[in-house]
């Protein structure tokens, strides 16, 4: 019970502190889930993001379900997910009920413009941390660069990149003996 409450409140905190979608949640997850509690590793976070990209539903919710399920089974998955959406429910309902033209308020616009700069730097730090554990050799460096450049230049669904990268991983294992055992 105590652990379930801990799951709920940890994910509620993560949901309440995330500005702007699933990727912005990554620095919070690294802090709360990887560093403060040993619920998942950076490698597992990357796996969940990759799978979250090509399974239905929004990434933030999928990742919460994954980590909750890993920690405390099916009930944990449900509790973590309810936790991550709880702050949204409260905050949005209050705004929708009481504050019309919230997004047009000068103070909100200015604060959010500042927050966006910080979100950028936080995600940048998160990417560097992930890169340190995912880019290990020439093959993984190539995959990283190709996906980065590809998704900047091409208007293709991330699912395509995820599928090709998985196939490339298996091919590298068969041809170059990489990945399979130590990954």
């Amino acid at each position: 019970m105590k652990e379930l409450l801990d799951l709920f409140f940890t994910f509620a905190r993560i949901g309440g502190l995330t500005f702007g979608g699933g990727y912005a949640m990554l620095p919070m997850l690294q802090k709360e889930v990887v560093e403060k509690r040993d619920w998942a590793t950076n490698e597992e976070l990357m796996d969940y993001y990759a799978i979250g990209q090509c399974t239905p539903g929004i990434i933030a919710v999928n990742t919460a379900t994954f980590i909750g399920n890993k920690t405390r089974g099916v009930l944990g998955g449900i509790i973590a997910t309810l936790g991550v959406v709880f702050p949204s429910l409260v905050i949005i309902t209050i705004i929708a009920a009481f504050i019309s033209n919230f997004a047009d308020l000068a103070v909100v616009k200015n604060a959010f413009a500042g927050i966006r700069v910080c979100v950028f730097v936080l995600i940048l730090n998160a990417v560097v941390k992930l890169g340190k554990s995912s880019i290990k050799d020439a093959v993984t460096l190539c995959i990283f660069l190709l996906v980065l450049i590809g998704s900047l230049l091409l208007d293709v669904s991330p699912i395509i990149f995820v599928l090709i990268a998985a196939a490339a991983g298996i091919a590298a294992h068969l041809l170059l003996q990489k990945g399979g055992d130590k990954a």
Binding site: E43, M46, D47, Y49, A50, Q53, V127, L130, G131, S133, S134, I135, V139, T140, L141, I143, F144, L145, L146, V147, L148, G150, S151, F161, V162, I164, A165, A166, A167, A168, G169, I170, A172, H173, K178, G179, G180, A183
Partner: peptide, 10 residues
């Protein structure tokens, strides 16, 4: 997953 992780990072 060895291929997925750098892609996820990308």
């Amino acid at each position: 997953f060895y291929g997925l992780r750098p892609a996820s990072t990308g």
